[in-house]
Simulated assay, not measured.
Amino acid sequence: MDPIVSTDSLAAFCERAAQFEFITVDTEFLRETTYWPRLCLIQVATDEEAVLIDPLAPNIQLAPFFALLADPKVTKVFHAARQDIEIFVKLTGAVPHNIFDTQIAASVCGFGDSASYDSLVRSICKVELDKSSRFTDWSARPLSDKQLSYALADVTWLRDIYRELRQQVEATRRWDWVEDELATLRSIDTYVVRPELAWERLKMKLNRPRDLAALKVLAQWRERRAQETDQPRSRVLKDDVIAELAAQRPLTAEAFEKLRAVPRGFGRSSAAAEIMALLKDVEALPKSALPALPERYRGPSPKGAVGDLVRVLLKAVAEQHGVAARIIATSDEIDALVLDDEADVPALKGWRRKLFGDKALAIKHGRLGLAATRKGIIEFEVNQAEAAE
């Protein structure tokens, strides 16, 4: 099938697609050398047809398709939707209305925490996909017949997967599980990167408030520069370079040359001049203006006996409900709730709290016990008076 390359043809398809209850959607894009993903192909299917849309075709306008994405009457079905939606948010400024993610649905139906599309096609549709075209150059034209067939398969089998998973979600009454996960995908904050918060994604242990102040301004500078020049963050500055700059805070070109992580000669670049100006501002900050370091926890280790019991509970709950343990809580989340009853983690919110979080806190405070039986792990209430003796 030849891709749609004209606005009129696209508008005609979108008019037909708007009459259906749902459409399946996927994209092909490139991002290896850019900050923003470059959209190369859009795949869409209804119950009656599947089409390819070429966003790189001369003079094509994607407005009819964007209007379809915004139509609340039509469910837009994706698999692992986050990167696809990020592209549409960049192009339209809005998250598509009425979205459904089959990877999320699969996770609450016992297919694992990150089920791939081809694994679901294999499990549900009993078909083995040819994925050899996955990493081809989607910006090159013309696209090969093999590429076109591969791209179409990403939305045609998705129709059957959606129907099957929807039935399973309804049968298990886990719509609240799915809705909790979809809430993140529906929030535009998921896709809009604020440079002033870029430092939060850097997992760096810092011992001095001035180091943290430097890290914040450096991460913000890198994020803005990457966005403005459309380069990957690592091409602007690698994470290890930011860490060393935050700790050493060089203020001269000569000082740059003494740093191990910084490329030789970088200290005399225009980028280094901007960085030195930022670091001079950091050095000039009074102590009262420096950010506070996170408080260090000085209580029992979450890796101790209490954490072990909570992990046993997690495994038992996951087995009982037929889902991957990681869907319910991660190891870091268990550490957090052991340290803090009010930890801001998914395990203590929504359906996860009902299923696991409240029980985890009850174990932590001695109100719930676990016992091993031939049938597996069982829970029992602890008599507080006896426990105190």
Rank of each mutant, 00 (worst) to 15 (best):
L68Y: 09
E15H: 10
F13H: 04
T24K: 01
I42E: 00
V169N: 00
A387E: 12
D340V: 11
Q384A: 12
A336C: 07
A343C: 09
E86A: 03
L251G: 11
V236T: 05
D2T: 10
Q61I: 08
Q320I: 01
G93M: 07
E49W: 02
L245T: 04
K126Q: 09
C125K: 01
E283A: 13
T102R: 02
L120H: 00
L370F: 09
I242R: 06
D308C: 06
I363S: 05
E21F: 08
I242C: 08
K375W: 08
N59I: 08
L314P: 00
C109I: 05
L185D: 03
K258R: 15
L62R: 02
R222M: 13
P3V: 06
R296T: 13
S133R: 05
G376R: 09
R374S: 14
S187P: 03
V121N: 03
S6T: 15
T252K: 07
E181H: 09
E170Y: 05
L309F: 04
Q103W: 02
A372W: 14
T172I: 00
H365R: 08
L62D: 01
L314H: 03
Q167R: 15
W157K: 04
T190P: 07
L368N: 08
R163L: 15
E254Y: 07
A271E: 13
E257W: 07
L69C: 08
P96Y: 07
A316F: 07
A183W: 03
F20M: 02
I104L: 15
L182H: 09
A271I: 06
A255R: 06
E274V: 05
L293W: 04
A94H: 14
R268F: 10
L152Q: 13
K303A: 14
Q231V: 01
A140E: 07
V25N: 03
H365M: 04
A316S: 15
I275R: 02
W177K: 03
P300F: 09
A140N: 05
A316V: 07
L237M: 13
V306P: 04
D281L: 12
Q320M: 06
R159C: 02
S187R: 09
F111E: 02
I327Y: 01
S331M: 06
E295H: 10
R298F: 11
D340Y: 13
